[in-house]
């Protein structure tokens, strides 16, 4: 359980995190979503006590991170910025961290095996690829078998097999009742991994809701219908106060009702349907709709380009 209450961080005149309040519950994967510069990494640094909040507070299992007696036992963290000395081997890096909390070296070796780094355990981290760095970071996060995991962009740099592996791992850790909190700037990534999503922009909370709701909200439940009797169907739907927009002579866009309901109306009135397609706005569009006003580094849109279909 992670609880943020009015969490605020200013660096000089710049406000990175602005009055953020949220709760990350155990037992599910919670996504932390926002465009670049939204304050995700800063929030994670505040959770881990690396930065001190300007105002507000954030606690893990009810206490400030710095007050935890066995931090690696309670919280496992993978930061976006590399946090390993490149002149040390993967195994020695983990041994040094393990020593602070009395984790035996046997577990270090087991974890290296589990994340697939056993073959390069004795090699300098300097030569590691981004994907290997991520795997080492995951091993470090799991060292103390923590109840809570905080992961900043964990799929960054992983190959498709690695991404599938980490999604499975995070879901199984959450299924064991742990708190899993991961950030991403990709909504599609969240849809694949997370159940709940906390969306931030410009350091402020934009939404805190189940991933399924984001998808529904964005899709607006539009259904595209193709039928030779378009005018007839349009009349029938309009009678029922359903919003209909003609797209072409034989095509309609219907809003606010399910494809099943439209099919039933057509059946009752002996209308021949050729196509009946629920149109899902892409997740990225859903996300962009939600964060449109909060994109910090958005390129200035040229007037001539506005209205270009996405």
């Amino acid at each position: 359980m992670i609880e943020a209450e009015g969490l605020t961080k200013r660096y000089g005149a710049k406000t990175a995190v602005d009055g953020l309040s949220f709760v990350v519950r155990p037992g599910i994967v919670t996504g932390f979503l926002g465009p670049n510069g939204a304050g995700k990494s800063t929030t994670m640094r505040l959770i881990l006590g690396l930065d001190a909040p300007t105002a507000g507070s954030v606690t893990v299992n009810g206490s400030r991170y710095a007050r935890l007696r066995a931090p690696l036992r309670e919280v496992g963290a993978l930061l976006e910025a590399r946090s390993v000395h490149t002149g040390r081997s993967a195994r020695n890096h983990l041994r040094a961290l393990a020593a602070t909390t009395g984790v035996p070296t046997k577990r270090v070796d087991d974890l290296l095996e589990m994340v697939g780094l056993a073959d390069v355990a004795h090699k300098w981290v300097r030569g590691f690829s981004l994907g290997m760095h991520q795997r080492l970071g995951v091993a470090a996060a799991l060292l103390g078998d923590p109840h809570t995991l905080v992961l900043d962009e964990p799929v960054n740099g992983l190959d498709p097999e690695g991404i599938r592996w980490i999604r499975g791992l995070l879901r199984s850790l959450a299924a064991e009742g742990r708190t899993v909190f991961l950030s991403s700037h990709l909504m599609s990534e969240m849809a694949q991994t997370a159940e709940q999503v906390i969306i931030v922009g410009k350091g402020r909370l934009i939404a805190d809701l189940p991933v399924a709701d984001v998808i529904n909200r964005a899709s607006g439940s539009t259904v595209e219908v193709r039928t030779p009797q378009a005018d007839e169907l349009r009349g029938l739907l309009a009678d029922r106060r359903i919003a209909v927009t003609p797209i072409a002579a034989d095509r309609l866009a219907v809003n606010g009702v399910s494809s099943s309901d439209i099919g039933l109306i057509a059946l009752e009135n002996r209308i021949h349907l050729v196509e009946l397609t629920p149109v899902l706005a892409s997740l990225e569009e859903a996300f962009m709709d939600l964060t449109r006003d909060a994109v910090e580094f958005g390129g200035a849109t040229h007037p001539a380009l506005e209205g270009t279909p996405r």
Binding site: G49, L50, P71, A77, S83, L97
Partner: peptide, 12 residues
Amino acid sequence: TGMIRATLTAVP
């Protein structure tokens, strides 16, 4: 190298 972040997370 950034190791300090791992160090201070382990010993906050």
